[in-house]
Design a protein around this nucleic acid. Structure first.
Length: 488
DNA sequence: GGCGACTCCGAACGAGTTTC
DNA sequence: GAAACTCGTTCGGAGTCGCC
């Protein structure tokens, strides 16, 4: 944002919205519920709004966007009311807030919608229906609006349980119970977290598999994780925003576990992952801090931990191997995701300067349990050289990983190809030996063939599982060695 | 190339939950 | 009641896309 438009990163208040609607009525030509404004109207709307609001507090793009969200919401309400009038159901403002919220969410997936109060809706209806031109409201049978008092009266009369709407299903139990919670909350359980990690892993794999073109985006998009999450059986209600937050949460928990495991190992050599949930939860206060109460971190088992580590590695590799980072201005405080997520341990903390953040990105979290060692790295030179060493090691590890993944990928492809060829050959020989007229014999032999192949594949799979288990154990040994090694 | 709409997603936020 | 954490929503910066 420019200096003349200082960043105003908080919700539009009711007064601002009313001022926007007023400006809208003043400068926008009918039909006023059109979604697209003419360029001149956009500018005029911003100017008029700025004049009414006293100062140019919102940018042109912000005003345009808010206008767009209001139109979308207004049209949804008008259409909804028209339908419910035909069906004899409750109108929009008689619905519980939770249900309104759900409908807004379902209908405004991409663009989003502003929650419109009844007062604001009436103002909007007034300006949209005046001045001629066909509007959504005039097209619909429900254009005549009852007075606010009447609506209020009716709303009080409507039993909450009659919330019976329609497109929305799912987390609306609250509404059906008559509660008017603003945003129905759904707490994730073990299943959701496991699904999420699996989906995240699949998304990274998918992305690695076809993301080697330099022109491709090199940052894993969160919508891809959401897509995989839903494909694996996760709730379709989960938004990309929610996935973003979940990812941040998992990464934060991963760092938490890493710290705990290392601190515990250093303390008495015991294994964090062998402890029960309650034990972990109790111990974290000694290992991390007296006020620490991470729950998700305590639920993460060794397997999940290893999975997350692999995924984070792969995702970081995407940034280093497949090309440059997506260009982004450094004006904004940088993100908390991935490598810098430790900063998220205090989510409301003020944003870091880019320099501070790049420091954070390069260095591992300071172990809270052990005080910093006596001035080994106080000197700039030593600091710099150790950082360079770390970078070299990091690059080597990443390169090794990348090479290994590539080899595995090629091997998998080759094996699949070979398997197909073998099968084709077997079938061909079979057909030659047993002609089609001899079908019973043919069928029984084929059954045997399928059975044998199943056996072979099961053996192979079991072998791969063993290898995977071995890899985990190796990793665990490495982790132990690392954490018992005295800090430099 | 310029412009506006669309889209993604990080940050901020508020409300709820848990633990002490 | 305080503090830390969880969770979903909203806003808006910035990248992308399509049109002229």
């Amino acid at each position: 944002m420019s200096a003349s438009h200082p960043k105003l990163s908080y919700a539009w208040n009711a007064q601002e919205l009313l001022q926007l609607v007023r400006a809208w009525g003043d400068v926008v030509s009918p039909p006023r519920d059109k979604k697209m404004l003419l360029p001149a109207e956009r500018i005029a709307l911003h100017a008029r709004f700025s004049a009414l609001a006293g100062a140019s507090r919102r940018s042109l793009s912000s005003v345009s966007r808010q206008h767009h969200r209001l139109v979308t919401a207004y049209r949804l309400i008008v259409e909804y009311n028209a339908r419910s009038e035909e069906d004899g159901g409750p109108n929009w403002f008689q619905l519980p807030a939770a249900q309104q919220h759900e409908l807004r969410r379902v209908h405004g997936k991409k663009e989003g919608m502003t929650a419109i109060s009844e007062e604001l809706f009436e103002d909007l209806a007034r300006i949209c229906q005046s001045g001629g031109g066909e509007t959504v409201a005039t097209r619909s049978p429900s254009s005549e609006k009852p007075s606010r008092k009447a609506v209020e009266k009716r709303r009080r009369k409507v039993p909450a349980a009659m919330a019976t709407v329609q497109e929305s299903s799912g987390p609306l139990e609250d509404a059906e119970k008559g509660e008017t919670t603003e945003s129905p909350r759904f707490k994730w359980g073990q299943r959701e977290w496991l699904l999420f990690v699996a989906a995240w892993g699949e998304a990274v794999d998918d992305f690695v598999d076809y993301g080697n073109d330099q022109r491709e985006k090199v940052k894993l998009p969160n919508w891809l994780i959401r897509q995989r999450f839903i494909a694996l059986g996760g709730s379709e209600e989960t938004t990309v925003g929610s996935i973003t937050a979940k990812k941040r949460c998992v990464i934060q928990s991963f760092h938490f576990v890493r710290e705990c495991a290392a601190a515990l190992e250093a303390r008495d050599g015991s294994d964090w992952f062998q402890l029960a949930y309650n034990e972990r939860f109790r111990l974290q206060r000694k290992l991390i801090g007296p006020k620490s109460s991470q729950r998700l971190g305590c639920e993460i088992d060794l397997q999940m931990f290893a999975n997350i580590a692999t995924i984070i590695d792969k995702e970081e590799m995407l940034l280093t191997v497949t090309g440059g980072k997506r260009k982004r201005s450094r004006k904004r405080a940088p993100s908390v995701s991935s490598e810098s997520s430790l900063a998220a341990s205090s989510p409301r903390s003020p944003s870091l300067e880019p320099e501070e953040l790049s420091d954070l990105e390069e260095t591992p979290p300071p172990p809270p349990a052990s005080p910093p060692p006596p001035s080994v790295s106080v000197h700039g030179e030593e600091d710099a050289s150790s950082q360079v060493d770390e970078k070299v090691i990091e690059s080597l590890l990443e390169a090794q990983n990348a090479r290994f993944e590539q080899l595995m990928h090629d091997l998998r492809e080759e094996r699949m190809e070979e398997r197909k060829q073998n099968q084709a050959m077997l079938l061909e020989i079979l057909h030659q030996r047993a002609p089609p007229e001899d079908s019973p014999q043919n069928a029984s032999y084929m059954e045997t063939l399928v059975g044998k192949q199943q056996e072979q594949l099961m053996d192979l799979f079991a072998q791969m599982q063993k290898e995977r288990q071995q890899e985990r154990e190796d990793y665990h040994v490495l982790l132990r060695q690392l954490s018992t090694r005295p800090r430099a």
